[in-house]
Design a protein around this nucleic acid. Structure first.
Length: 260
DNA sequence: ATGGCTGCAGGATGCAGA
């Protein structure tokens, strides 16, 4: 089973690019972030015609997450527990049934958190705490789960081409990295880091200042796997090609292949 | 570089992103 996650930066601006990418990568399941579309304006039919069931949860103009699946989606939910007052569309989860059981899927768009002296940063850290609690509760049931998305965290210096540029940024502040480690240290597997300890594996290049041409990238899109999911991991890849296409998102897809 | 782009809503340009 192939699962991909991609911050698409506007699903309506990326319909043609997304259709092209889906046909070349052939994922069974896709997590999207930053769809920037209200649900009624989401171009679901385009993706249903490509064979996907579509679960989407968005807002006008910003945020927004989705899960596409060639298998039926069950138990679809769109809110991360822990703050009834949070109206931002940043989380979608669902179950798919496969041979040998179910897999829980979580597509997430973790808050950016800049500027760090604002309530945006405290919102990011609170959101991280809620995600931690979500993981604790699902680890307790020994479910197979796959959390993927734009975590807006550069886990370590090797995850940035120019780490010194990001020292005081919300993406790599000590509090953000501590929250990331606290989540991973529950027993989750950072999928990409099972394949390599090398620098140079990025998922985002800014539109500005020729970041792509200079390979000024960062790794902020991740898959975290529960132990049962990690046991099934076959391969991980970053589909960098997509950043060089016309009208690209500033993020590229990250892909995991699981047994079964 | 003064985020130097980009998408969105809307019908100009401000907001949001990382």
């Amino acid at each position: 089973m192939r699962i991909a996650t991609w911050n698409i930066n506007g699903v309506k601006a990326r319909i043609d690019t997304a259709a092209k990418w889906l046909s070349t990568a052939s994922p069974d399941i896709v997590f999207l972030q930053e769809t920037k579309s209200a649900d009624e304006a989401f171009p679901a039919a385009t993706f249903e015609d490509l064979g996907y069931n579509v679960a989407r949860h968005g807002q006008k103009g910003f945020n927004g997450v989705a899960i596409f699946s060639k298998l039926p989606l069950e138990d679809v939910r769109f809110s991360l527990p822990g703050d009834e007052g949070d109206t931002q569309a940043r989380f979608a989860e669902a179950l798919v049934s496969v041979q040998g059981g179910a897999i829980r899927l979580g597509s997430l768009y973790l808050p950016n958190g800049n500027p760090v002296d604002s309530d945006k940063f405290s919102y990011k850290l609170a959101w991280f705490d809620r995600l931690h609690d979500w993981a604790v509760s699902h680890l307790a049931t020994e479910e197979t789960f796959v959390l993927g998305g734009d975590f807006n965290v550069i886990p370590a210096s090797i995850d940035a081409r120019f780490p010194d540029n990001w020292t005081d940024d919300a993406l790599c502040r000590a509090e953000s990295r501590a929250a990331w480690r606290r989540l991973v240290n529950l027993g989750l597997t950072d999928a990409l880091r099972t394949t390599t300890n090398a620098p140079g594996h990025y998922t985002f290049w800014d539109y500005q200042a020729g970041a792509w041409q200079k390979n000024n990238g960062i790794r902020i899109d991740h898959f975290l796997l529960s132990p049962q999911a990690a046991d099934r991991l076959k391969s991980v890849s970053i589909d960098k090609r997509v950043r060089g296409w016309d009208k690209p998102s500033d993020h590229v897809p990250l892909i995991v292949d699981l047994e079964g």
